[in-house]
Amino acid sequence: MTIKRCSFLVPGDLNTRTGGYTYDRRVIDGLRAQQWEVEVQTLGEGYPAPAAAALAQAGRVADALPDGALAVVDGLAFGVLPDLAQRHAQRLCWIALVHHPLSLETGLDAAQQRALFESERRALASARGVIVTSSSTARALAAFDVPDSRIVVVEPGTEPAPLAAGSGTDALSLLCVATVTPRKGHALLIEALAGLKDRCWTLHCAGSLVMDAACASALMQAIERHGLRERVVLHGEQDEAGLCALYAKADAFVLPSFHEGYGMALAEALAYGLPVISTRAGAIPDTVPADAGLLVSPGDAIALRAALQRLMDDAAWRAQLKAGAQRARGRLPTWQQSGARFASVLADFRQPAGGA
């Protein structure tokens, strides 16, 4: 029997609590459930702006892989390692796992965007295959000169969840689950809610406050400046039990992202039957059905405020969205399905290039 084996190369710590790392962990578990031997190795810290030490570590890891090895590399690292990818392209089977293009991160200046775009374009040229988490990201990679034949979509799974019980109070409980970085739009959310202080609501934010300390500090200052300290709770990073408790007590979910390669937290919200207020950014329209949420233009605080105001004022409409979310929860893929599909895709990509 042919041994199914791959190396899974990740930037930093695989146990980091973000959507991308959660996807990596669950896919690795899924591969092992499909009888794959998976060796996980770290490429060092600091991606997508690795220091010399991380680049040296990535080089050592790649050098040590045996000829013909199937190497799945998280795109947060692969996109900034074009020279390493090219150097080993003939002897390794590179599989790039792209959650979303690096140049689409919020807060980059034009020069940074160009540099990341060119770096990722060069790296992807060396990949045997590219796995993405949404059709939106697959379409975005056309600009990187990646042929459609080398791109496969493997959507994240979603853990089944009980329907949220809600806050049970007159004050609407809004939940935002996202690491505090510029791309997630927390500052925009505070600006929108600042104009709704006459309504009864509380915002609960779950997500790391240390991954981008400057962004977190600016968020705290904005909360103070708008006089919302008693209305906004920053819970920081939560474990599974903590997240489940927050989802269970929420009345609605809000995430004003500037871009999402899929939006795993949005799918989680649907699994709990929560109505969603978000944006038409990246893959979000593919993740959130029209009858389960209202999507506004990214960066539009006025439109976001109007959506939140309607959510607060129109109980019948909120109930309609909740019903739509409850219908959507039954259509979400499971992690078992995602793991099996990932394994099938790897099996196809590991075939010799001439037969792929």
Rank of each mutant, 00 (worst) to 15 (best):
217 S>D: 15
250 A>L: 07
295 L>H: 10
327 R>F: 04
197 K>N: 04
316 A>S: 14
269 A>S: 05
281 A>E: 12
263 G>L: 03
300 D>L: 06
320 Q>E: 08
247 Y>V: 00
256 P>S: 10
310 R>W: 09
199 R>S: 07
219 L>E: 11
331 R>A: 11
291 D>I: 00
288 V>E: 12
207 G>Q: 12
205 C>N: 04
317 W>K: 02
209 L>P: 05
300 D>H: 13
301 A>W: 14
216 A>F: 01
276 V>R: 04
277 I>H: 02
291 D>E: 14
306 A>R: 08
269 A>D: 03
269 A>T: 05
308 L>Y: 13
259 H>N: 11
272 Y>C: 01
336 Q>N: 09
281 A>S: 13
198 D>S: 10
262 Y>T: 05
295 L>S: 04
206 A>F: 14
294 L>G: 00
331 R>N: 09
229 R>M: 09
307 A>Y: 08
199 R>V: 02
253 F>Y: 09
330 G>I: 07
202 T>S: 02
301 A>F: 12
272 Y>F: 08
225 R>N: 14
227 G>C: 07
329 R>F: 15
307 A>I: 03
202 T>H: 14
224 E>G: 04
296 V>D: 08
309 Q>S: 10
269 A>I: 02
340 A>F: 11
195 G>L: 01
312 M>Y: 04
325 A>N: 08
228 L>G: 03
270 L>K: 05
335 W>V: 09
317 W>P: 00
232 V>A: 02
327 R>Q: 07
306 A>K: 04
301 A>Q: 13
295 L>F: 10
321 L>E: 08
242 G>K: 10
220 M>I: 09
217 S>Y: 13
319 A>L: 05
244 C>L: 03
257 S>Q: 07
261 G>F: 08
333 P>Y: 12
297 S>V: 08
222 A>N: 12
223 I>G: 05
220 M>G: 14
303 A>E: 13
210 V>L: 01
217 S>N: 14
195 G>P: 01
217 S>W: 15
292 A>D: 03
201 W>K: 00
295 L>Y: 13
328 A>Q: 03
309 Q>L: 09
229 R>E: 14
197 K>M: 03
338 S>F: 11
218 A>D: 15
257 S>C: 03
201 W>M: 00
218 A>H: 15
324 G>S: 07
294 L>Y: 15
273 G>M: 10
230 E>S: 10
264 M>K: 01
325 A>D: 09
273 G>E: 13
274 L>T: 08
293 G>M: 07
224 E>L: 10
233 V>I: 14
237 E>F: 11
197 K>E: 09
293 G>T: 13
286 D>F: 08
249 K>W: 10
279 T>M: 06
213 A>D: 05
231 R>H: 09
274 L>M: 04
257 S>Y: 11
254 V>N: 02
311 L>A: 01
290 A>I: 02
